[in-house]
Design a binder for these strands. Structure first.
Lengths: 187, 187
DNA sequence: GAACCACTAGGACAATTGTCCTAGTGGTTC
DNA sequence: GAACCACTAGGACAATTGTCCTAGTGGTTC
């Protein structure tokens, strides 16, 4: 049992690395260890697998967020934890880009219904970041949350293109300082 | 005559909108108006078309740059012209993302040799931006050029995901002001 | 041990893909 | 008008793709 979950977990990884449209069932079959035609016992279509992959990503994102919340009560620290994904997942991002950004773009280009799912993922982080800025008593928390997303998307693309680790480290540090400067609480 | 160039021009557009891997010859044939098998009179492989598409993009980018240089002698103005692509091509970016960033990411995921071509495109803008910052007597012109690229990549992804024109306008304005603040010349 | 179950392999299918090949056509050059 | 040219349509090909189907297998439940 759990085969279905295995498939989704492996598909999540492969779709990230190769793109959804560039990942045929042959690859999935090889990685999961079942035959190609057999996927249809578990899923109705390839799009159904994608839908569950997005659900899995949402769950994983929620538990990442829960982890950051558990690790610090300070909203600025929490936002920095988000920013530091750029370092924690550096090698993956260098090779395949940001999972959110590249997925959203692929869905948009394909005019795929799951474009909405990609946006949900962004919304999840955006909402949470905005909440942290609110807790910092910052003006325009939603705008600032957009700024953080924008930064991490840009940095991920630079990382993917140039693989310049010094630059990324500097930017992560700079952005974390910027976040702290948004704190308007009496401290 | 010129048929070859027609094909490359149409392929450039389609590859941008749909992605290279998701654009079959059927689509190309429909758009160009010749039969599918007939492409092989003009090109040896699909990859050969891509190579010429990249060359075309490089040429187009160079003439955009030449246009900005002709329009203003002030380096800050010139950099702002680059940043304002986000507004000039807003609708395209909302629908398909940044041509540079999305292309680079697709090539990286496919581990396609043309990853190098994608990077050449980035290098072209990076080099030119760095030159503008040098002309402004700014410290660390190459770093600042990276910052501009990073910003426009992030903003393009936000535009592609959220299509929030107010946000993009504000960010373009903010970034242009930031550019001007890097000016260290005696004025 | 019969009935059921979740799961499997792998053949088959039509559609699509990149590519190759043949047989043209229509204009220019001598 | 013969020779050449750039270009064309479209059939054919093998490989690949997503999907469907059939015939199982191996374990659990009564």
């Amino acid at each position: 049992m759990g085969k279905r979950q295995d498939i989704v977990a492996i598909a999540e990884d492969l779709f990230y690395r190769q793109g959804f449209g560039q990942t045929p069932f042959t690859d999935l079959a090889g990685a999961v260890g079942i035959s190609r035609g057999n996927f249809y016992h578990h899923f109705k279509t390839k799009d159904d697998i994608l839908a569950e992959v997005v659900t899995l990503r949402l769950e994983k994102s929620r538990s990442m967020i829960a982890g950051w919340e558990a690790q610090s009560a300070d909203p600025a620290d929490r936002i920095c934890a988000y920013i530091r994904i750029l370092l924690a997942n550096q090698e993956l991002i260098e090779n395949f880009g940001c999972p959110l950004g590249s997925f959203a773009n692929e869905m948009a280009k394909a005019q795929h219904p799951m474009t909405a799912g990609a946006r949900q993922l962004f919304d999840l982080f955006h909402g949470w970041l905005a909440q942290q800025f609110t807790d910092m008593a910052a003006a325009r928390p939603e705008y600032l949350a957009m700024r953080v997303l924008q930064f991490s998307q840009g940095a991920a693309t630079m990382s993917n293109t140039y693989r310049d680790r010094n630059f990324i480290s500097e930017e992560v540090a700079r952005m974390c300082e910027w976040v702290r400067r948004q704190d308007r609480r009496e401290e």
